[in-house]
Simulated assay, not measured.
Amino acid sequence: MKIAIFGQFYHKHSEIPVEILLKHLLKKQADIYIERHFFDLIHDELENDEPYYAFKTFEVLDHTYDLLISIGGDGTILRAVTFVKELGIPIVGINAGRLGFLATIPKEHIEQAIDDILEGHYNISERSLLEISTTPENKTISEMNFALNEIAVSRKDTTSMITVETSLNNEYLTSYWSDGLIIATPTGSTGYSLSCGGPVITPDTNSLVLTPIAPHNLNARPLIITDSTEIKLKVSGREDNYLVSLDSRIATIDNDTVLTIKKANFSIKMIELLNESFLKTLRKKLLWGEDKRN
Rank of each mutant, 00 (worst) to 15 (best):
T260Q: 14
S160Y: 09
I183L: 14
S133D: 11
G191H: 01
Y33E: 05
K292I: 14
F266D: 00
R155F: 04
I20V: 13
P51W: 14
K232W: 03
F38L: 01
R283L: 01
T252V: 14
F9M: 06
E59Q: 13
D240C: 00
L46P: 00
R221S: 06
L130T: 05
L210C: 07
G188T: 04
H11N: 15
D254H: 12
V200I: 15
P51C: 13
I3R: 03
N170V: 04
I268C: 06
L22P: 00
E143F: 09
E111P: 03
D115M: 05
I94K: 11
F9L: 10
E171K: 08
N241S: 15
V18I: 09
Y10S: 00
R221A: 03
I5A: 09
T185E: 03
F9K: 14
H24G: 05
P186Y: 03
T57V: 15
Y53G: 02
A147V: 04
H37K: 15
N217W: 07
F58Q: 03
S207C: 09
V244C: 02
N217D: 10
D256Y: 13
R249L: 10
A103L: 10
L286Q: 02
D31I: 08
E119A: 12
L102K: 04
T252E: 14
E239Y: 08
L87Q: 09
F83M: 05
S195A: 08
T158P: 00
Y122S: 09
F278L: 03
N219K: 12
S70V: 08
T174N: 15
S245P: 00
I34E: 05
K107Q: 14
R79S: 13
Y122T: 09
I224S: 05
L218T: 03
E272G: 02
N95R: 06
F55S: 08
S189G: 08
L208I: 13
L26Q: 10
E230Y: 06
I34L: 05
V164S: 12
I20M: 06
F146D: 11
L223A: 09
N217Y: 13
K27S: 01
D44R: 14
D44Y: 10
Y242W: 04
E272P: 00
K27M: 06
T64V: 02
K156F: 15
N145T: 11
L46M: 13
V164K: 12
I268W: 01
S14G: 05
T202W: 07
E15L: 09
L282T: 11
E171Y: 01
H37P: 01
E171T: 06
L259Y: 03
F278S: 10
T260I: 14
T174G: 04
I224C: 05
A184K: 02
R249N: 09
Q8K: 15
G73P: 02
L25A: 12
R283M: 07
S267Y: 01
T174P: 02
I253S: 07
G198Y: 08
I224H: 03
V84G: 04
L130F: 11
N275F: 07
K107A: 09
I89R: 02
Y172R: 11
S167E: 14
V60W: 06
L210N: 04
F6D: 02
L87P: 03
N95Y: 04
R249K: 14
I32Q: 01
M144L: 15
N138L: 00
